[in-house]
Design a protein around this nucleic acid. Structure first.
Lengths: 138, 138
DNA sequence: CTATTTATGACAGCATGTCTGACGTAACGA
DNA sequence: TCGTTACGTCAGACATGCTGTCATAAATAG
């Protein structure tokens, strides 16, 4: 418990300075992160990842769109949906955030060793569930 | 990254209903958690765990004191400090929160196996640092 | 003993992030 | 055509964090 809280807090905290420079907060970073990892996802899917309400996401997305970090296109299969993806500026920002966080994870992974990382992933997947289903709401 | 975020979110989320019934939020739960695990700790130590400002903690602690969940006594060695510990009501609440969260962790630990849990802890300690030093500020 | 530092408490105001509720529009599907 | 779905948006509220400021008591340095 303690470990999970402290680790998540510290990793998220590392990105603060990079984000502040772009006038964004942590909520923006989380949205940015999942859009970066799942290009072209819909708003509903993004909500599934973040588990917040669409009204909450709205403010965050407005900022990202105004800032030119995210691009919103009408979905091709279902024209009601919006396909979200990062602009070059968005990619640059996501990379900057990642570069701020990577050293901690890399150091922890290296010092713990391959086997430990395998166990780490196994347990977290046990807690978080199948990544393939994160995007679904329930 | 994704795993860490989702896992922390889901575990913390499980306690929401229990906390809401007591009129408290997640910030209260975090304070309660660290007081439960480190009985008699000082305010400065609690701030070291939570990494928030004393002004932010103030509101949370006021609520916990008013609600009769936490007890505050003058420190014995250093009379400037305040020794914090849970009241019976606080312990009951902390237990209720823990009982809401335990099943997820227990299931994940069981299905991942002993070795995986060892690796999980090893990596998280690598990210979060030595637990003995969490209570220190810098 | 005096001056300074430390640990804490309190209050005011502000920013962020989240929520519920309500309404509207466009597109899908039976 | 009609009900449902996916989304956008406005309004108002709450929770949680922050900075800044002042006050007090106790420890500590000189």
């Amino acid at each position: 418990m303690d470990l999970l809280f402290i680790a998540a807090r510290d990793v998220a905290g590392k990105s603060a300075s990079v984000l502040a420079a772009a006038g964004l907060g942590r909520a923006h970073a989380r949205a940015l992160h999942f859009i970066a990892r799942n290009p072209g996802l819909s708003v509903a899917e993004l909500l599934g990842f973040l588990k917040i309400t669409k009204q909450s996401l709205n403010r965050v997305m407005s900022d990202l769109l105004k800032g030119g970090f995210v691009e919103r296109k009408t979905g091709m299969q279902d024209r009601r949906t919006r396909s979200l993806q990062l602009t070059p500026a968005g990619k640059a920002l996501a990379d900057a955030v990642w570069n701020a966080q990577r050293p901690i994870l890399a150091a922890a992974f290296r010092s713990a060793g391959q086997d430990a990382v395998g166990g780490y992933r196994k347990v977290l997947i046990g807690i978080a569930g199948d990544p393939e289903r994160w995007r679904k709401n329930p």
